[in-house]
Design a protein around this nucleic acid. Structure first.
Lengths: 339, 339
DNA sequence: CTGAAAGCGCTTACAG
DNA sequence: CTGAAAGCGCTTACAG
């Protein structure tokens, strides 16, 4: 592998000049630049990243921590990767379940769907390494997130509008704000809240299936379920099918997130801009890296109506439609989206 | 941030000694080592990765290229990340859709579900950077892969055993070997192959839905579909539901891959060890990095029978089961799995 | 067992 | 506009 010294020798210039050409300095005579560029190409020279990092103190690498087990993470990651790699940064990946990134080799950190422990944040702050959060609000740090309460309201209002009154909530730890939106919508519609219809269970197929069974086999079962995540919603779907309940005739189901799974399953859900959230997060980090920190940002959400919601069976609006309809997109009216 | 020089000064030793302690050299007196270790902890010192890389010529970073859009990639990535990060390597991510990794900052490359262009492979070979493939066979390179033809046979034999004879194949470019297995199974069972039942369509929901419609609306429709990917299989499921066909009563569906989506959708499918493939690939790369290259490896597959397959409607074996059964796992008899 | 010193390949004042 | 030289923070023969 060629070094800058060899390029300099071949091009009959000093290494400083090669370095200037490499870094786009305007202080190089056109003819000199041409000669250097030609030599670089001929030798197939590429600068050594470690040497550059040691010299400049910047690695041009940013860390991305995320829980790999979450399906939405991959889509957010795509947005992150696109923006960062176009800006010439390397993306160093850390699974949230593994040990935390060593500090000194990173220019910045992007944390997806989780917040690093306070002790880590202090280490990053001490080293002056900017941290940006995606899909997690934060008081102090720049973060891109959505309004979970508005999303919960949106989902519930859709079910109420279809004529449902017995609407269950199936959530996980962390779905508290979505549940708050659910309760707010019921309140606003004057529908009585029934604690028996609220199930807070951990993520995962089994727990959701169990809760579904309990709900459907209760004396006064719900006609609709709002699940605080798409994976839980699909588990409800599968579980309902196993119990002989038709969707949406016997049970309407709304999810949250609009991950790929939702599109394939024809699930009605609250859509978050996943890839875009990654892009915006990466842009926030790039800005911080360039020295002008931005304050963070809230992205819009919308309800995507697909095939898993309809009027309850007893309703006059009820009818069996032939074939599936195209998805409808409904944006919340009351949501303020800052840009 | 502290440097090795400060640690040396504080501990009243030379920098070489600190370096020896850092690198676990046995040639350090116990008492000296203790003093250095204590000082390192007190100063919160961590070695500068760039300086180390420049000095040793090894970055302790490996690149991972993958098509982010493929759902199976995330699961493979988890295995890769776990093994590499435990071995002290950084994982640098490259989306296959973006530009290719710059060479000099990587000790090795892992390519998931694709093979880098020959020109790139030559650059890596020239720089003596080992390359390992996951989910892609290769003549020359170390690779971990599965037997796609055996998988196609397994899926088709399952449908044949249930009594199906009109079995459609729905595949994408790259599913050729799975199709070969499908054809081999039909041949072996003496079932006539019908070209009208074979649809080769690109990845994606729309194309699969379109093909499903054509199949189901044909004069002599199939009673079962083998789709060469889980995402296509789920699109078939959704499309069949929209057309009023019940699964598995009117149509049995088998997928391929056993991605998370399959588990949630209750899909019968050919399971590949996704996370394990990533782990094995990472181990192959670590071995190559340590100078003893391994020859690559084939992993086993199995059929996971869930809720989307059953006997055809006319069959004497047909009955409506109440509720879903637990998944059954069937391993191929004829498959040789090298270890 | 230990330390002084060279060297890894860049960048960047500094002096021309 | 250009080059010689110092310096970034490590590792590793080399000499003791």
């Amino acid at each position: 592998v060629a070094t800058i010294a060899e390029v300099a020798r071949e091009a009959r210039v000093g290494v400083a000049t090669v370095s200037r050409v490499l870094n786009g300095s305007p202080a190089v005579r056109d003819e000199t630049r041409r000669r250097v560029v030609e030599t670089i190409a001929r030798l197939g020279y590429a600068p050594n990243a470690a040497a550059r990092a040691l010299s400049t103190g910047r690695t041009r690498a940013v860390g991305v921590v995320a829980p790999f087990s979450r399906p939405s993470v991959m889509e957010r990651l795509r947005g992150v990767s696109r923006v960062l790699s176009r800006a010439g940064y390397q993306v160093v990946l850390y699974d949230a379940d593994e040990r935390f990134p060593a500090l000194p080799s990173l220019d910045g950190l992007l944390s997806i769907s989780l917040c690093p422990p306070e002790a880590e944040l202090e280490r990053f702050a001490a080293a002056d390494v900017p941290v940006v959060l995606v899909d997690h609000p934060h008081e102090r740090l720049a973060a891109v997130h959505t309004d979970d309460a508005a999303g919960g309201r949106l989902a519930t209002e859709h079910l109420l509008a279809l004529g449902h009154e017995r609407i269950a909530f199936l959530g996980h730890a962390g779905g508290a704000r979505r549940r708050a939106g659910y309760e707010a919508a019921l309140d606003a519609a004057g529908v009585r809240q029934d604690p028996a219809l609220v199930h807070c269970v951990p993520h995962g197929r089994e727990a959701a299936a169990e809760a579904t069974r309990e709900l459907l086999e209760a004396p006064d079962p719900p006609t609709a379920v709002f699940a605080a995540s798409d994976t839980q919603a699909v588990a409800v779907l599968e579980s309902a099918a196993g119990l002989g309940a038709r969707v949406p005739e016997d049970l309407s189901v709304v999810g949250y997130g609009d991950i790929e799974l939702a599109r394939y399953a024809g699930l009605t859900t609250v859509a978050q801009p996943l890839e875009e959230s990654g892009e915006r997060g990466a842009e926030l980090l790039l800005a911080a890296l360039d020295g002008d920190p931005a304050p963070g940002r809230q992205l819009g959400i919308e309800l995507v109506v697909r095939a898993t919601t309809g009027p309850p069976a007893g309703s006059p609006r009820h009818h069996r439609s032939a074939g599936r309809e195209r998805p409808r997109h409904i944006r919340p009216e009351g949501t303020r989206v800052r840009s």
